[in-house]
């Protein structure tokens, strides 16, 4: 739990540093302030499923394709092609507890959504469906929005990167 606590503290500090930013970072700050950093951490919502959770019924597109709308800022191997899905880690991997967030527009309803790009960790790289889009991605010194970083750093299984998720965390506006 120590790593988890550190991650929450980091996100809170980082958000405080960036509260003057415009755009979705500002909105992210509002979310963190309102709900507490820990509830943003995807690990709090991880549960086991017998099968990879598919995309939601009202979505359109192919989650095995780099063109799929949620992947607007991803950089890595798509978990959909690696035994998981856009929101499910493949078996035997561990979801990263912290990650970076992007904002993508869902073409079906025209709304922007905050997407959490958690990594699945603990095995060597999947190597399938490499996808690099980078919309809104920033340099590594702005880590909360950087996709060049290996976000497996908070896991118990180590930093070995396997694949990337793109999880809908809620509307951005």
């Amino acid at each position: 739990m120590r790593r988890f606590d550190r991650a929450a503290e980091y996100l809170a500090r980082s958000t405080a540093r960036n509260t003057s930013r415009r755009g979705f970072i500002g909105r992210l700050g509002a979310i963190v302030t309102a709900t507490g950093a820990a509830t943003l951490l995807p690990i709090s919502r991880v549960r086991a499923e017998k099968a990879a959770v598919p995309i939601q019924v009202q979505e359109e597109g192919d989650p095995n394709s780099c063109d799929y709308w949620r992947y607007c800022a991803v950089d890595g191997f798509l978990c959909s092609c690696c035994g998981g899905s856009a929101s499910s880690c493949p078996p035997g991997t561990e979801p990263s507890p912290i990650t970076w967030l992007g904002t993508c527009r869902n073409p079906t309803d025209g709304r922007n959504y905050v997407i959490s790009y958690n990594d699945c960790c603990g095995k060597a790289a999947c190597g399938r469906c490499n996808c690099s889009r980078d919309e809104g991605a920033t340099p590594v010194y702005q880590p909360t929005t950087a996709n060049d970083l290996d976000w497996c750093l908070g896991t118990q299984t180590g930093v070995a990167y396997h694949c990337s998720l793109s999880v809908v965390t809620g509307p951005a506006d």
């Binding site: 500090r13 980082s14 540093r17 340099p139 590594v140 010194y141 702005q142 909360t144």
Partner: peptide
């Protein structure tokens, strides 16, 4: 805290880039 990387600017000095 808040800053990353080290760009050397002399034998014993450097600059870092910060999130803001």
């Amino acid at each position: 805290p808040g800053c990353a990387l080290a760009h050397m600017t002399g034998p014993r000095s450097f600059m870092m880039q910060c999130a803001d």
